[in-house]
Simulated scan of single mutants.
Amino acid sequence: MLIAQITDIHLGFQPGDPNELNRKRLDSVLAALTADGRRPDLCIATGDLTEHGTIPSYRTLKTVFDALPFPVWPILGNHDVRENFNSVFSSLPRTQDGFVHYAFDAGPLRFVMLDTLEEGLHGGSFDAGRAAWLDATLAASDRPTIIALHHPPLESGNAWMTEDPRADWIEALHGVVARHRHVVRLLSGHLHRGMTTGFAGTTLCVCPATAPQVALDFRDLDTTRPDGRDMIVAESPGFALHYWNGRDLVTQFGSGGDHPVLARFNARMQGEVAKIVGEREPA
């Protein structure tokens, strides 16, 4: 089973411009995901779907998603507006507390889509009500489970795009996930870079953004002294492909746009490819 992940689309960064940079970057990623031989079974979109949370931007995004040859399951990020999202993506299930939480089964896997948005905050939130919902949802099935959330509960090393691992919401999430050993992966966005780490006995994977990436920087930051460092860079728009091989989830990162091809499977490569494949075939 092949699961695509896109995140941090930030559609509508240039309001009213149908040819805005973020739309072009999204289109290049979707073109890569719909190319022959690479088509996923489904796609999850892990938040910051739009820049300003406007209804027109959600309508545009829904039109894009509906045209794809696979289903897209979205969650919310800190740039999203829950009320406007709900008015456009009205077919998604809702919990009684108003959060956009839901779960679904696909193939051998279960997907739990978690709402970590606290409107007005940049960082994540996970209160007692959300913890109770997640705990009950995970307890309802022992299928291998993927949790999708926007905000990654990690200290990234980037001084301005990170979380405090001692934060109450992270400790609460850790406590719930650690109780359920069938959680095979947490998938998130928010940081505009690809990264992985361990979390609560499983693996946390952060997907690169379709929008521009955050500069790679591990230096300390003094907020009172702007030092001219790079913050947002025009690296290629990114996505993740998560391959379920029946035992584990294997994640690979890709990017949209054109890439020069340096080798193809032709007669010149046939012998080398046959040798490589033959080495892992049983005698």
Score class of each variant (00 low, 15 high):
Arg181Gln: 14
Leu11Glu: 00
Arg193Gln: 15
Gly201Leu: 01
Leu191Gly: 03
Leu30Thr: 02
Phe85Asn: 01
Met113Ser: 06
Lys275Pro: 00
Glu272Asn: 09
Ala136Ile: 02
Leu186Met: 12
His52Met: 12
Leu187Ala: 15
Leu262Cys: 10
Leu154Gln: 13
His150Arg: 07
Leu204Lys: 05
Leu49Pro: 02
Cys207Trp: 02
Ser57Ile: 00
Pro212Lys: 05
Ala131Cys: 08
Ser57Asn: 15
Ile232Thr: 07
Ala209Arg: 08
Leu241Asn: 09
Ala4Leu: 11
Phe89His: 04
Gly107His: 05
Ser236Pro: 05
Cys43Ala: 15
Ala178Ser: 15
Gly129Tyr: 10
Ala234Asp: 15
Phe253Ala: 11
Asp36Val: 08
Ala67Gly: 14
Leu21Lys: 09
Asp36Pro: 06
Gly228Thr: 00
Glu20Val: 02
Pro108Leu: 04
Ile55Cys: 08
Ala32Arg: 14
Val250Met: 15
Asp105Ile: 06
Ala103Pro: 05
Lys62Thr: 04
Leu68Cys: 09
Arg94Thr: 08
Leu26Val: 00
Pro15Ala: 01
Thr60Gly: 07
Val112Lys: 06
Pro282Phe: 13
Glu272Ala: 13
Leu262Met: 14
Ala128Lys: 10
Val214Gly: 06
Thr54Glu: 14
Ala209Trp: 08
Gly77Ala: 02
Ser90Arg: 15
Leu33Tyr: 03
Leu26Asn: 01
Ile3Cys: 05
Pro208Asn: 11
Ala267Met: 12
Ser141Arg: 06
Ser255Cys: 13
Ile44Met: 15
Asp80Pro: 02
Asp168Ile: 03
Leu117Pro: 01
Leu42Ala: 12
Gly257Trp: 11
Gly271Pro: 03
Met1Tyr: 12
Asp17Lys: 01
Val177Tyr: 13
Ala240Leu: 15
Leu121Arg: 13
Gly246Cys: 13
Pro18Thr: 08
Thr202Arg: 13
Asp97Val: 04
Ala267Tyr: 12
Leu26Gln: 01
Trp169Cys: 05
Leu173Asp: 03
Phe99Thr: 10
Phe111Lys: 05
Asp36Ile: 06
Pro71Cys: 07
Ala35Ser: 12
His122Cys: 06
His52Asn: 14
Gly129Phe: 07
Ser28Phe: 04
Pro144Asp: 07
Asp105Thr: 10
Gln5Leu: 04
Met195Cys: 11
Ser57Asp: 15
Gln213Pro: 03
Glu118Trp: 09
Gly129Glu: 12
Leu191Lys: 09
Leu114Gln: 09
His242Thr: 09
Arg143Trp: 09
Arg130Cys: 01
Gly37Pro: 06
Gly47Ala: 02
Phe85Val: 00
Gly189Ile: 00
Leu42Asn: 06
Thr116Asn: 04
Leu92Ile: 02
Val112Asp: 10
Asp80Tyr: 00
Trp244Tyr: 08
Ala31Leu: 11
Thr197Trp: 14
Gly123Pro: 00
Val64Glu: 11
Val233His: 03
Lys24Cys: 07
Gly98Ala: 11
Met269Lys: 11
His180Val: 06
Phe239Gly: 04
Leu26Gly: 01
Leu204Ile: 00
Lys62Met: 14
Glu279Phe: 10
Phe199Asn: 14
Arg39Ser: 06
Ile44Ser: 09
Gly246Trp: 15
Met113Phe: 05
Met195Gly: 08
Ala283Thr: 09
